[in-house]
Computed example of a mutant assay.
Amino acid sequence: MERELLIECQRNSRSAQRKVYEKMAGRLHSVCRRYLKNDEDIEEVLADAFYKIFTNITQLRNLDTFEGWAKKIAVNECLQKLRAAKAQFVSMDDSFAESSGTLSESISFEKDILSLLNFLPEGCRAIFNLFAIEGYPHKEIATMLSISEGTSKSQLNFARKKLQELLVNQNI
C-alpha cells in the first residue's frame, strides 16, 4: 500500500479512504469468506472492519504493516460475528451434516479446498482458518473464541478429518 495514501487516510481524506477501500476490499472480502458463509454477514463485517480501519488508522505507527493490521481487524470482526451468533462447535460423536449444494469439479485446486471449508460447521471452520491459514496458536485461539485449548485442538482435528473425507469423496 502506498505510504502517501495511508498518510492521507490518517488525515481523514475521503478520496484516499475510497482508494484504500478499492484496493483492499477484495482481499478482505476473501478473508471474511473463509470465516462466514452468508453474503450479508460478510458485507456487514466488511463494513464494520473498514469503519474500524479508518477510525483507528491514526493509531497505526508503522504504515508498512497496514495490510496485516487491516487483515487482523477483518478477522477479529468475523470472530466477533461468530461469537455473537454463538457458532456451534460439533461434538466428535455427532455425525457430519453437509451443507446443501454441490461441489464444483471445474474450479482450481485452491478454490476447491477453500470451497470445502464451507462444508464445515462454523466453529470448526473458524478454528481451522485461525490455526492453519492465519497461524494462531491454540492458546490464542481459545482466548479469542472463549473456549478451552482442548476444544480448539479437537475442533481442528475434526476439521482436518472432514476435509480429508471431502477431498477423497470429491476426488480432488
Rank of each mutant, 00 (worst) to 15 (best):
R3G: 11
L5T: 05
E8N: 13
C9P: 05
C9S: 07
Q10T: 09
Q10A: 03
Q10N: 10
N12V: 09
S13R: 06
R14G: 05
R14S: 14
S15T: 15
K19V: 09
V20N: 01
K23V: 10
A25F: 10
R27V: 14
H29V: 09
R33F: 13
R33M: 08
N38K: 13
E40R: 13
E43D: 12
L46E: 00
D48S: 15
T55A: 08
N56L: 02
N56P: 05
I57D: 02
L60I: 13
R61D: 14
N62T: 14
F66A: 11
E67W: 00
G68C: 09
G68S: 15
W69M: 11
W69Q: 11
I73M: 04
A74P: 05
E77P: 05
C78I: 12
C78T: 11
K81C: 10
K81G: 06
L82Q: 00
R83V: 08
A84E: 07
A85G: 11
A85F: 06
F89C: 10
F89L: 12
V90A: 12
D93C: 14
F96S: 05
F96M: 11
F96R: 01
S99M: 09
S100Q: 12
G101T: 06
S104K: 05
E105Y: 07
S108C: 14
S108N: 12
F109Y: 15
K111E: 11
D112Q: 13
I113T: 12
L114Y: 09
L114A: 14
L114G: 06
L116G: 07
L116H: 03
L120V: 12
P121F: 04
P121A: 15
E122V: 04
G123R: 06
C124R: 02
R125L: 01
A126K: 01
I127R: 02
F128V: 00
I133V: 11
Y136E: 03
P137S: 08
T143A: 14
M144Q: 05
L145A: 06
I147S: 14
S148N: 08
G150K: 04
T151E: 10
T151G: 07
T151S: 09
K153P: 01
K153R: 14
S154T: 15
Q155G: 06
Q155F: 02
F158H: 07
A159M: 00
R160F: 04
Q164C: 10
Q164A: 14
L166N: 04
N171Y: 02
